[in-house]
Amino acid sequence: MKLQKVFGNTYFVKGGTNTGVYLFENNEALLIDPGLSGLRPKNMIKMFENEKIIPKYIVNTHEHEDHVGACGQIKQVYPDVGIFASEDSKLFIERPELFSTFVLGGKHNKFLNQKLFHRNAEKINVDEILCEGNLNRNNVDFKIINFKGHTNGSVGILTKDKVLFAGDLLIGEETLSKYDFLYLQDVKEYLESLDKAKSIDFDYIVLAHGKRFLDKHDAILSIEKHKQAIYKYLNQIRENLKVPMNIEVLLKKIIKENELTCNYKEYYFFRNSLVAFISYLADLDEVNYKIEDGDMLYYTKLK
């Protein structure tokens, strides 16, 4: 495990979730999305010790376990490290069972928890709330950007080297080509966040899940591909709902038509996304619902 330089003092550590590292002049560091708990943070801590790096701050772009799970292990070794997250993310980071309940739409259960949570028993507390705007630490300015959509609490962080860490706003092209039914909580907010990212003055963007970082040109191309994925599923839903059907039947059609594979967790992630898509179309006054024989049926409104 080693630091991969992006530009200036901005680095990242490759992994299932790429972890951002900004090195201050005194060798203290601001970390971004430390990833899952377990072996990865142990290896990162060894690397920090070898390089004489002291983690001082951790910025979490959102609350998902594959981004925040390692915070507790890092805090145990570096008790003075400050853990940052948005207000909406803080709730789920500190009480992860609420996210499981949110995904299921009812009390969390062991089937989902086994897939979602890998952290040890240590509780993660958020020390400071991130708000959009300037964040100054160690006399260095960073910018926090709201990137709502993937989750309501999603944020990005821009370093002074003009390197943008955007969490799960974008995923790597190799993943997008296989799994383009993105996990979203709010489609409208997500589309607005994609457009917002294009307007930001950055030179490079580090994806949380991707094999390489992108320059601005490639990032814009990726943004357009993500938008195309959204429009693809919106059109599929519009077309399928010309025949009234319930959520489960529609979800089955979406999974089969796009040859998506899923486990218990991914099924409910797909279901959450589908509800977000239907809610978006409902806000556009394009779909309606009816209840027949105890069955909730959605349908595309005729124009």
Results as ranks from 00 to 15, higher is better:
F202D: 01
N109P: 13
D283P: 00
D33N: 15
P34M: 00
V155L: 09
E94P: 06
L36M: 13
Y233Q: 07
L158D: 04
E97Y: 14
S193C: 06
L194Y: 08
T61A: 12
A70L: 03
N235V: 01
E65K: 09
N60Y: 03
Q185K: 11
P244R: 11
N246R: 05
G133R: 09
G167H: 06
V13P: 00
D186L: 02
L184I: 10
L297P: 00
I247V: 15
Y233T: 12
N26T: 04
E248G: 00
D285P: 01
Y190C: 05
L251C: 05
E189G: 12
T159E: 03
N125R: 09
N109C: 10
L281Q: 07
N138K: 14
N134A: 14
L297C: 06
C262Q: 11
G133A: 09
L221G: 11
N152Y: 14
S86M: 04
E122R: 15
G105N: 07
A282Q: 15
L274Y: 06
L302F: 11
V103C: 03
K256G: 00
F213C: 03
E248R: 10
K303Y: 10
K301S: 02
S100I: 04
E122P: 00
K115C: 10
L191P: 00
Y204R: 05
Y289C: 08
D218F: 15
N43Y: 13
D203Q: 13
L250H: 01
V68R: 03
M1W: 08
N60F: 06
G82V: 15
G105Q: 07
K216D: 02
Q236A: 07
I237F: 02
L176N: 10
R271H: 05
Q4H: 14
K232F: 02
I58Y: 03
H62M: 12
D141S: 15
L274I: 11
A282T: 14
E94Y: 03
M296N: 11
I53M: 08
N113Q: 11
G105Y: 03
D201F: 04
A219R: 01
F99Q: 04
I220W: 02
N125T: 13
Y183Q: 10
K188H: 12
K225R: 14
E28C: 11
K42D: 11
I93N: 01
T151P: 01
M1L: 10
G153L: 04
E63F: 14
Y57K: 14
H150Q: 08
I171V: 14
T17G: 11
V140T: 15
L30K: 05
I205C: 11
E189T: 09
Q228M: 12
G105D: 04
L194C: 07
K2L: 11
D215F: 10
P55M: 01
F111M: 12
Y299P: 00
G149D: 05
I83V: 14
S222H: 06
Q73S: 10
C262T: 08
R271F: 01
K178W: 06
V287R: 00
L194R: 07
H62G: 08
K196T: 08
G72K: 15
Y190H: 12
R119S: 09
I237V: 12
D141Q: 14
K115S: 12
N288R: 02
D180F: 08
N146L: 04
I58E: 02
S193Q: 03
I237T: 08
S193R: 03
L98W: 07
P41H: 02
F12C: 05
D161W: 03
V13L: 12
L274G: 09
N136C: 13
K42P: 01
M1Y: 10
L3S: 07
N134H: 08
